[in-house]
Amino acid sequence: MVEKLLVENKNIVVPGEVLAEGMNFLPGKRAFREKEKICASILGLVNINGRVISVIPLSGAYMPNKDDVVIGQIEDVGFSGWHVNIFCPYPADLNVAEATRKYLDTNKTELTRFLDIGEYIFAKVIKVSSSKFVILTMKDRPYRKLKEGTIIKICSTKIPRLIGKKGSMVNMLKQSSGCEILIGQNGLVWISGDPEKEQMVVRAISKIEEEAHREGLTDRIKTMLGGENGKKRTARETNS
């Protein structure tokens, strides 16, 4: 058997495409083995890590996993908790006991006074059952109800790019805008700060989403942010 790698790192591959031949290679995430072959199981970018070949998706709906950090919207209120839309095919539940460390007497307190329908929360997935019942918690920091700010949704597959290596991308956004930014792995992003700066961050994130698969993105975003900040400054100077 000849060991043969048929793709290079960051190649775009389609579902079913053969990535490598030979038993020496191992299928990673979104790849599978068929006899001697390793094949892609999704449209995405090849990621070769030693003998392990995986595929990073370019698109697709968010599917919840334990320990994911998400942003959700309160959809309905029950006797002992809330139903939360976490923008995936499955609704999530937030129990009163998981909502706050404070004691809430459900007989006396109307739950909607704590979290009302339509409000957004920043929460963590603590459990996903095999048939996809999802349980959330927000009792520890930094999980909380989200107040004023802008909320946007991008494709969840682009979230790692938005965060960047060790948070480099999002930190750059925070520093240059002075905004607070919270990112849900389900693709929702909350931005809070000066309304004009919020808009600047939204534009930058939109560019990151569009160009996530392209090289040199960080530099382009840096230039974009620098330019926008620069422009504003010039405008103000002219006014004064």
């Binding site: 389609v14 579902p15 079913g16 979104r30 599978f32 094949c39 199981s41 999704i42 449209l43 995405g44 998706p57 370019l58 698109s59 697709g60 709906a61 597959t157």
Partner: peptide, 11 residues
């Protein structure tokens, strides 16, 4: 289907 990021074993 592939464009939608659905996991598939072939086209």
């Amino acid at each position: 289907l592939a464009d939608a990021g659905i996991e598939m074993n072939d086209l």
